[in-house]
Structures are given as structure tokens and as C-alpha cells.
Nucleic acid binder design. Structure first.
Lengths: 141, 141
DNA sequence: ATTCTTGCAAACGTTTTGCAGGCAC
DNA sequence: GTGCCTGCAAAACGTTTGCAAGAAT
């Protein structure tokens, strides 16, 4: 569990020109604590005790994503996953229970260069999504 | 434009034990013609002239995906993309206009091995999704 | 004749929008 | 005080389900 640094979050918001509100600080703390990709309803569950509305979560998390504080992960085709944007990494995802594990140190540079060399319509790539799907050990046995 | 071989599609369906219906043959022809990942509503547009219901498209395309005739692609977090399952490849996706280009010959074997070596919870991977996002030349200029 | 498939209507879950009141600055 | 944020209500959107009629085998 990483420590929550509200002061840092507040500064981060101020720097961007966003108002520092309780909802935003709470949201950032949730995203920082659970460093795994979470759906909006995952986040909502953790905010049961608060008065923070679902719509406020949607608006702010999407805002954070636009700014880059948060990253979207393409894990399912019917629900958005958001995670705090720390070091670049990808995920292993269990197709049965949904468990997500990070993996780092993946080098996609060569791959992307190769793709661009082949490409007719693109000459640069800004982001990429790489997700590995399988069964986790528990579900496999 | 690949030629549509209805006879082959019919045989494909029969082999699996699915009934050969006009809706299914038409759907397969749409998927085979446009070999790019398409949303359900993309497909629906191409079937405007027919009496094929949206629900029939959902049910059959999902069925095809389960069987493996069709593959899902994780291109957006709010809509499913389906494409005819031919050779293994990935996509370059324009973040502005949505244009999709295929790229082949990507070797992810090492990458996946590396991920599994690191992993605590997984010892095999069945599928993976790799999508590259950027601006196509038209949108970039 | 039997079973599977379809279309229609309705429900469902996620996400977006409009608006008035409230809070940060 | 001004402008941005929030909560509430309602709508929009993609997708799924139930059911009766129809088509494929």
C-alpha cells in the first residue's frame, strides 16, 4: 500500500489549473492505493461511505486520463479500466476470474519500428496497448 | 475485395453443427469482405437493405467469436470490434479518424516468455492483444 | 416433427448530458 | 464575485434477454 500524499496530489492538481476539491483528492487516493486497473464501479464501491456521485467519478477520472495522471487499459471491450499512471507496464489478465497482474520491462520498440516500416498510413505511434490473456494458476487447476 | 465463397461458408457452418441460414451467410460475407475490425453498428449499416435484425447480428457474431471464425479486437473500451479470423496480426489505429491498418509478422513470443518468467500468478498465456495508437498521415498533417 | 434461429419488445449496465446549487479561488 | 465542480435526474448508448413465430434439418 503506497502512502497517500494529499499535499502532492493537491499540488499536482493546482499545477494543471484544476481546482482542489475533496472529491478529486479522494479519487486520486483511491487510484494511488489500488495501483491496478479499476473500473468505475470498482472505484464507486470504495467510495460507498462518501457522498461522491458516480457522475463525478466519471468526469474526473476521464479528466485525469486526458491530462495523463491516469491511464486507460483496454482489458475488456465493454468497460473502461483506469489506473494511476506510474511506470510503463502491461498486464496479464485471467480470463476466468479477472485477476490482473502487472509486468514491466517489456520492450516494444523494435516491434513498433517494424510496424511503422510496413505501414502505408502511419509514420508515428504515440501509445500502445498490450494485454496478455490466460488462466491464472488458481483458475487453471 | 476477397471473393465470397458461400459454399465454403455453408460447409464451415455445417461442420460446426450450426444451421445454414441467410442471415449467417450474409454476415460471414460482410466479415470476409471488409477484413478490418468492425463494430456491430458498422456491420448493421452494411445490412441496411436486408431484414437482418441487430440482435441477430449480436448473437451470431458473438457465436462466431466463440467458435473462432471471428476474432475480437480491443480497440476501444466502449464498443466491441470483430474481424474475420485469418492470419495473426495486429493493428495501427488512428486516434483521430479511427482508421485501422493491419500489421503482420510481429513476434511477441519473447515478450510473453519474459512476462511469464516474471509472473507470480500465471504460467501460460492463451491470447494477447496488441494495438498501436497514433495519428495517421492524413490526420497528422 | 424437432430443434435451432429469428425478430420484436423490453430490460440491462455503462456512460453522457443538462441544469441548478455550491464550493474553490 | 466569478467560474469551475458537484449532485441529481434523465437520457443515450451498446448489449443482453424472453418469448412466440418461423425456418432449417
Amino acid at each position: 500500500m503506497p502512502k497517500i500524499d494529499y499535499k502532492h496530489s493537491a499540488q499536482q492538481l493546482q499545477k494543471i489549473g484544476l481546482k482542489v476539491t475533496p472529491a478529486r483528492l479522494t479519487l486520486l487516493s483511491v487510484l494511488q492505493t489500488h495501483r491496478q486497473p479499476q473500473t468505475i464501479s470498482d472505484i464507486k464501491k470504495q467510495l460507498k461511505k462518501t457522498r461522491i456521485d458516480l457522475v463525478t467519478i466519471y468526469r474526473n477520472v476521464e479528466l485525469f486520463a486526458k491530462i495523463g495522471i491516469v491511464k486507460k487499459a483496454l482489458i475488456r471491450d465493454n468497460e473502461a479500466f483506469y489506473e494511476y499512471n506510474s511506470t510503463h507496464h502491461h498486464h496479464l489478465v485471467c480470463q476466468s476470474c479477472g485477476r490482473i497482474e502487472d509486468f514491466e520491462g517489456c520492450n516494444t520498440r523494435n516491434l513498433i519500428e517494424k510496424a511503422l516500416k510496413q505501414s502505408q498510413y502511419f509514420n508515428s505511434i504515440k501509445e500502445h496497448s498490450l494485454e496478455l490473456f490466460g488462466l491464472c494458476k488458481t483458475c487453471a487447476s
